[in-house]
Computed example of a mutant assay.
Amino acid sequence: MSALTGNGEQGDGERVPPGGGLTTGEVARRLGVAPTTVRTWDRRYGLGPEDRTGGRHRRWTAGDVARLERMCALTATGLPPAEAARLARGEEPPPPTPERRAPARETAAGSRRPPARSRAGSGLRLGDVRQECKGIARAALRLDAAALDRLLLAAITDHGLVAAWTEVIVPTLQAVGRKWESSGERYVEVEHFLSWHVSGALRRTTPATVADRPGATTVLACVPGENHTLPLEVLSAALTERGVPVRMFGGALPVESLVAAVRRTGPAAVGLWAQSRTTASRPLAQHVAGMEWGVRGARRRPVVLTLGPGWAGQTVAGLARPAGLAEAVAALESVVAR
């Protein structure tokens, strides 16, 4: 039971209803969602408590909470909220009628096609994406940790790491990014929450490390000033999954530390990630590519890959710039195989 404040209210400011039952704040904490989400489901979809204490105070019974748990589970699969609410209330879905079908759109060639799926039912513009994106987006917006973990692990298991990242996780991250950019810096917590859980899912679905093989190690690091590590974490997980030894150094590695890491590991390849053009450094990439080690007459150099959108327009002669995760994995596997 949550502690009460001195004025007979919950810590979240909601008055405790007499006669037992749960307050909206307690229900929200139990479900792992925001109290505003619970109130919205009550107001918009009729999923409120059967008993009220007078005024607007709500008292939620076990049956009321069970309906909300059903609502959470259904929306987490990508089902539209209105349809999920009908099922949560135990209602049969209405039969399809011609009036309910969305009109087809004309293409440039005059052919007709169904309209693109453009929203997640939560204000996120996702476009024509896999169904899993919608469930993940809703779970992230609700800050529903349990549902988000379950959906991310299912996507990776069902599609494989590379396809799950490219076709499910990236479109959802991009939609969240567009949301906060257009909302006056709101929803930043959603992006951080989603990124953290993606990182956790990667660790749970891939081996921790691969034993070193001389001359086969890949070094991965963000360039100085760059802290966007998630794409490198995915690349590291994909390489580890394929048996490639990886040394991951994460965000904003100082120049002297990067040079020391390369000299100490003698890697076959080095991947340098830059999210922003302001952090991508052509001289740094060229310097790493020119480093040598080993005995005289048999010196070796690393193959350097410039990774991330920050390198757009910063092409470094002689260095590969893979277009995406699959291309980067293939390139690094090829280098290690040689």
Rank of each mutant, 00 (worst) to 15 (best):
A3P: 10
Q10D: 08
G21Q: 11
G21A: 08
L22G: 00
E26M: 13
A28K: 00
P35T: 02
L47N: 07
L47I: 02
G48A: 00
R58A: 04
T61F: 09
G63N: 12
R67V: 01
M71A: 06
G90C: 10
P103M: 03
R105Q: 12
E106W: 10
R113W: 12
P114R: 14
R117A: 06
G121T: 07
L124M: 14
D128R: 04
E132R: 15
K134Y: 05
G135V: 05
A137R: 01
A146M: 09
A154K: 06
A154N: 12
A155M: 02
T157Q: 11
D158V: 07
T172I: 06
L173N: 08
R178W: 12
S183F: 10
R186Q: 14
H192V: 10
W196C: 04
T205Q: 13
A211G: 10
D212H: 01
T218F: 02
E226M: 01
V234P: 02
E241S: 08
G243N: 14
V246R: 03
V246E: 15
R247D: 14
M248Y: 15
A252H: 11
S257P: 11
G266K: 06
A269Q: 00
V270S: 00
A280M: 08
A280Q: 03
V288S: 00
M291H: 02
V295Q: 04
R296N: 12
G297H: 03
T306E: 11
L307Q: 10
P309C: 05
P322T: 03
E327F: 03
